[in-house]
Amino acid sequence: MANSPSGDSMTDRLVRVLETFTPTRTVQTTADIGRRADLPRSSAHRIVSELVVSGLLERDETNGVRIGMRLWELATRSSDALRLRQAALPLMERVQTRIREHTQLAILEQDEALFLERLSAPRSGANVTRIAGRLPLHASSSGLLLLAYADADTRGRVLARPLQRLTPDTIVEPDALRRKLDEIRILGHVVAPGYIEDVSTGVAVPIRAGGPRVVAALSVVLPRENDTEPALRELLSAARDIERSLRPHS
């Protein structure tokens, strides 16, 4: 792709435009997109208009811009994440029916926990997770589980950077975090009381696909005072069933 006068490529600019959309920022003006993507006004208008014509972005009745259905369509074709979500969803529904709080599925993506699915009951407790949203690896139960089973380079990057303390219980000291990751690998699960919200406890277990490599974290978020053992039993049972459904059929 040709470079702009500032030296960034068209691909860079397209990615920056798409990255301005978040799980909570779903509709924007073209001017807001340009500002957030650090683009000149004329470039922002041209790129947004071209993406609208292609169907990757759409305009609503107020001329606001949102992600287009064609982008969703392309993203879900032959996606490993979609296959994982499809395999997990029936078992997540079983967990949700029995626990009736929040049940979640997350993968490791660019040193964060990316959530593919979340199920919640009408009267569930607090939860900051959003579908297609991200949470830090060191603070969320899913993130800690994924970090514990990540490769050494990923763990090294996360442990080397300053870690944000989200609550008084968030682990931010590298040595303490290393000990927690060791504990997770020994136990095969994680319980994280108050790490990301004071009032909640996250419980997460690994999902593997045809080998030792962990491909996802299955988790629940409970009110902090709740007993975690029933949720852990349900998660471990569901994870085993998901793993069976991911195995290639002979």
Score class of each variant (00 low, 15 high):
residue 2 A to V: 08
residue 4 S to T: 11
residue 5 P to N: 10
residue 7 G to L: 10
residue 7 G to K: 08
residue 9 S to A: 08
residue 12 D to K: 06
residue 13 R to Q: 14
residue 16 R to G: 03
residue 17 V to F: 04
residue 20 T to Y: 07
residue 24 T to V: 13
residue 31 A to F: 03
residue 33 I to M: 08
residue 33 I to D: 03
residue 36 R to S: 12
residue 42 S to Q: 12
residue 42 S to V: 13
residue 43 S to M: 11
residue 47 I to Q: 02
residue 48 V to L: 07
residue 49 S to Q: 13
residue 51 L to K: 04
residue 53 V to M: 07
residue 53 V to H: 10
residue 55 G to W: 09
residue 56 L to Y: 14
residue 64 G to P: 04
residue 65 V to R: 05
residue 65 V to S: 06
residue 72 W to D: 11
residue 72 W to H: 13
residue 74 L to V: 10
residue 75 A to Y: 06
residue 75 A to S: 15
residue 75 A to Q: 08
residue 76 T to F: 07
residue 76 T to G: 11
residue 77 R to W: 06
residue 78 S to K: 10
residue 81 A to R: 15
residue 84 L to I: 07
residue 85 R to C: 08
residue 86 Q to D: 13
residue 89 L to P: 00
residue 92 M to S: 01
residue 94 R to P: 00
residue 95 V to S: 01
residue 99 I to Q: 01
residue 102 H to I: 03
residue 105 L to D: 00
residue 105 L to H: 00
residue 113 A to Q: 02
residue 118 R to V: 13
residue 118 R to H: 06
residue 119 L to A: 06
residue 126 A to Y: 10
residue 127 N to M: 06
residue 129 T to I: 15
residue 129 T to E: 02
residue 133 G to K: 05
residue 136 P to T: 12
residue 136 P to M: 05
residue 136 P to L: 10
residue 137 L to D: 02
residue 137 L to W: 02
residue 142 S to G: 10
residue 145 L to W: 02
residue 147 L to W: 04
residue 148 A to P: 04
residue 162 P to F: 07
residue 162 P to V: 08
residue 162 P to Q: 08
residue 166 L to P: 01
residue 166 L to C: 03
residue 168 P to L: 08
residue 171 I to R: 09
residue 171 I to E: 09
residue 179 R to Y: 02
residue 185 R to W: 04
residue 185 R to V: 14
residue 186 I to Y: 05
residue 188 G to E: 09
residue 189 H to T: 01
residue 190 V to I: 13
residue 195 Y to A: 12
residue 195 Y to F: 12
residue 197 E to D: 14
residue 198 D to S: 13
residue 199 V to L: 09
residue 199 V to K: 09
residue 201 T to H: 04
residue 202 G to E: 09
residue 204 A to F: 03
residue 206 P to A: 13
residue 210 G to C: 09
residue 210 G to E: 09
residue 215 V to K: 02
residue 218 L to D: 05
residue 218 L to E: 02
residue 221 V to L: 12
residue 231 A to H: 01
residue 233 R to P: 00
residue 235 L to D: 04
residue 237 S to G: 10
residue 239 A to H: 01
residue 244 R to W: 05
residue 244 R to D: 13
residue 246 L to C: 09
residue 246 L to W: 08
residue 246 L to I: 08
residue 249 H to E: 14
